[in-house]
Design a protein around this nucleic acid. Structure first.
Lengths: 211, 211
DNA sequence: TATTGACTTATTGTATACAAAGGATTAAGT
DNA sequence: ACTTAATCCTTTGTATACAATAAGTCAATA
């Protein structure tokens, strides 16, 4: 397995906790690699801001409540724009992709609610696919590039992020509203709906964060 | 000197041209270093999107006209937001910093016009300081983080970016308008002025790009 | 007992050595 | 002459070895 993917996943899944120091030798042993590729992976993660440099080596970045607030503000700006652009310029192909992603999200949510089993990874993935479909319709690869870095952070706190059925249903409803606006080519409606959708996610996360 | 800084500067200054392959041994010799730190620097640049991976090694990313368009769209969105936020929340201290940066920019521009000498680096730096002062007033470090990656790209094409006195004066005028709006706490005015300012820069660059 | 200082240890940062994979060049065959 | 194949060479990718520095420990003195 790739060192970069391994470490990033471990951070996002919370296996490597905030402020935990990442020892190179330790990681090298876990991955059956030498320190050289480990260090390269760490440098990439540092450039993305997921780990922070110490005097020597790095530690997992501990995002503060203020960080989360700022990241959501940024995400609201970018994804709101993406939604409005999608409503403007979407093709039939884009729409099909979004509808497919939405159908899938609906299926996952409903299964989750019925069986009362919280398969967090599946929900997070389905949600991301939906958002990616909208961003793809924007046809701005640079926005996609930066959003992909931004979106990852709150997922670190996903353990309580998706924890109740009400929020899940609310989220699904928002997705439908956004999709309808894009389908009807209503940019401002799409932007506002996306804003509201992400604000709800933000509030939900912030409510459960202490510091 | 740091390998990362060296390579990044060389790319931004145009010393390493687009599509040029970056040989590790060659860079190591230039910097009197071994390949190890070179590779780490390259990984960072790859994460930022300034170099692209080949089957083996990397080359300097060749940004297309479409890339530039997308990057400017993104920058307009982010800096427009920054300007409006600055107008909302700016403190006296923020304002002082912006005014100082603006004074300095004015000085540089005027010297440049009078002496007819185009010290491109000085102009670019003064311009960046002004924009940074506005972004600082936003108090959103994550927006600053992403903008810092975005802003760099068009500078690669700066040789003709700042090439005439009319554009320079126009740019200075825009800066003053934005500053006034921030000073008077007019968020929408500030955003629109920033949009216009960056659109002008965009058009100027695009006009001189062929493909 | 607390604090400071030297010493020891562990881990990073850098260099080098080795292995593997592309790309280039040359030769052979059609 | 042009294409194809095989070999060689250059450069990357990985591992290891060495050097440098930060941190931790222990002892000594106030």
């Amino acid at each position: 397995m790739d060192a970069y993917e391994y470490i990033k996943d471990a951070i996002v899944q919370g296996k490597f906790e905030p402020d935990m120091r990442l020892g190179e030798e330790s990681l090298a042993k876990q991955l059956n690699l030498s320190r050289t590729p480990i260090r390269e992976a760490i440098k990439q993660l540092e450039a993305e801001g997921l780990v922070v440099p110490l005097k020597r080596g790095v530690s997992v970045r501990a995002f503060t409540k203020e960080d989360i607030r700022q990241i959501y503000d940024l995400r609201i700006l970018l994804e709101g724009y993406a939604a409005s652009q999608a409503a403007h310029f979407r093709t039939e192909h884009d729409l099909k992709a979004m509808e497919k992603a939405n159908k899938h999200y609906e299926k996952v949510i409903n299964e989750c609610i019925e069986s009362n089993i919280r398969n967090i990874k599946e929900i997070v993935d389905a949600n991301q696919q939906y958002h990616e479909a909208i961003i793809a319709a924007t046809k701005n690869s640079h926005i996609h590039f930066h959003l992909s870095k931004v979106v990852v952070v709150p997922i670190i706190f996903r353990s309580f992020y998706w924890y109740n059925h009400f929020h899940l249903k609310q989220s699904l409803e928002s997705h439908k509203i956004i999709l309808a606006a894009v389908k009807n080519k209503e940019p401002e409606r799409a932007r506002i709906a996306m804003h509201e959708h992400i604000y709800q996610g933000r509030d939900h996360v912030l409510k459960h964060l202490s510091n």
